[in-house]
């Protein structure tokens, strides 16, 4: 799945932390700044996006 996080609202640190924390669900990923192409072994994409948003809001 591809997602481009809006850099006005998300932090790169939050994306990187979420990738680490969701490591066990991730089959492969390719991150370029705020653009992320990620493949999960379960349907956790929505949870992942929420997690990134939660971390980004906490960072503010």
């Amino acid at each position: 799945m591809k997602i481009s996080f809006n850099k006005n609202f998300y932090s790169k640190k939050a994306i990187e932390t979420a990738i680490k924390d969701f490591n066990e669900f991730i089959i492969s990923f390719n991150q370029e700044d705020f653009n992320l192409n990620i493949e999960f072994n379960e349907e956790v994409f929505d949870e992942f996006c929420n997690y990134v948003l939660g971390l980004s809001l906490n960072d503010r």
Partner: peptide, 20 residues
């Protein structure tokens, strides 16, 4: 907007986009 968003994270999945 951030505060309201945070409140709804447990009821829904949210993505923020657009121009602030």
């Amino acid at each position: 907007i951030y505060s309201a968003t945070y409140l709804f994270l447990d009821k829904s999945y949210i993505i923020l986009d657009g121009d602030p």
